[in-house]
């Protein structure tokens, strides 16, 4: 039996859209629509998709920055949406931390590194300044920085080093789950590998679970154990990373893989043509009926525009497409 740390069940997030002088309600945006997933202890789940797919909104509902309109989040088997404020502060929030995409905006430029990294400790752990400082030095060491860096300000560091500081801050309270929102996409290519390796090492050392938000499939394959491919608020394909990349089923997954494959044109097989999708993702305010992908799908059939496909299990992963019903 897998040891499930966190589970999202049927999460749906609606945002009202208001317009005009009297701010009349003109519709609801379904940013996240009936999304379910689970993360095992010590493992990584990645949410993949283009901008507007609902990845960040899903992560926000896990971090409780916003409550989902319906559905719930279970942490170690308990429904955290039933917790009161006090319980959340004591039992949930310290154990779930986040690292943001852009290390240039995620830190207060007027605070020293020691204060940035110690902030979660000051808020949550009641201990002396000396104890806090010792913990900061220990954390900096874990992420590959030196003790003397504690006295510096964020602007004195490069992007890679800043992201290390952000990771140190996230680890300060020994969390069980870290939400990583595009942890490497703001960094340089040669620095990305350093940070990805660091994150993997820390995961092994502390038995951490990660919820990674990413748009780069190659990064995802390297980092994660499970993948959920999102399109327009829904998960369209979900399963074990290796299985999903070896045997992608959904036409959207295939298009994404084709778009991010590092291959010379001369090395492609004759029948292995690059898939280029036409058009753009439709507005979530007015999503297409039936399968949401059918407007761009190269393999769309008549029923795709009418009936929404169910999530079905094929082999070791799940897919939401009429081809497999």
């Amino acid at each position: 039996m897998a040891d499930i740390l966190l589970e999202g069940r049927n999460l749906t997030m609606l945002y009202p859209v208001r317009r005009g002088l009297f701010q009349g309600l003109i519709g609801m945006v379904r940013a996240v629509d009936n999304v379910s997933f689970s993360i095992e202890r010590g493992k990584t789940l990645s949410l993949v998709g283009e901008s507007g797919a609902g990845k960040t909104t899903t992560a926000k509902s896990v971090l409780l920055l916003e409550r989902a309109t319906s559905g719930s989040v279970y942490f170690e088997g308990k429904d955290i949406y039933q917790y009161n404020k006090d319980q959340l502060k004591r039992e949930y929030r310290p154990r779930v931390q986040a690292v943001q995409q852009n290390p240039w905006s995620s830190m207060n430029p007027r605070m020293r590194v020691k204060d940035i990294v110690a902030e979660p400790l000051v808020v949550n752990a009641k201990q002396s300044k000396k104890e806090n400082y010792d913990r900061v030095v220990e954390l900096l060491d874990q992420v590959g920085l030196k003790a003397e860096h504690a006295e510096h300000f964020p602007h004195e560091f490069s992007g890679g080093q800043r992201q290390r500081i952000a990771v140190a801050r996230a680890l300060a309270l020994n969390p069980s789950l870290v939400v990583l929102d595009e942890p490497v996409s703001a960094l340089d290519v040669s620095i990305r590998a350093q940070i990805m390796n660091l994150l993997k090492d820390l995961q092994e050392a502390h038995n951490l679970s990660y919820l990674v938000i990413a748009h780069n499939l190659a990064t995802v394959r390297y980092m994660s154990h499970g993948v959920a491919i999102m399109y327009l608020g829904q998960i369209v394909e979900y399963g074990d990373t290796e299985d999903l990349f070896e045997n992608p089923l959904h036409p959207y997954t295939n298009a994404l893989i084709s778009a991010s494959d590092l291959k010379l044109p001369e090395d492609r097989d004759q029948n292995e043509k690059e898939i280029i999708l036409s058009g753009e993702m439709p507005s979530p305010l007015n999503p297409p009926t039936g399968c949401r992908f059918h407007t761009r799908c190269p393999e769309a059939r008549p029923e795709c525009s009418k009936i929404e496909p169910e999530m079905v299990t094929v082999g070791k992963h799940q897919v939401k497409c009429h081809k497999f019903v």
């Binding site: 040669s190 590998a193 190659a218 990064t219």
Partner: peptide
């Protein structure tokens, strides 16, 4: 060589990425 090796690949599973140390 290092730059090409440090880019994760989609067509194979790497256990560890090659990384260029320093800046």
């Amino acid at each position: 060589r290092a730059l090409i090796n440090s880019v994760p690949r989609l067509d194979r599973k790497d256990d560890r990425l090659y990384s260029i140390e320093g800046q």
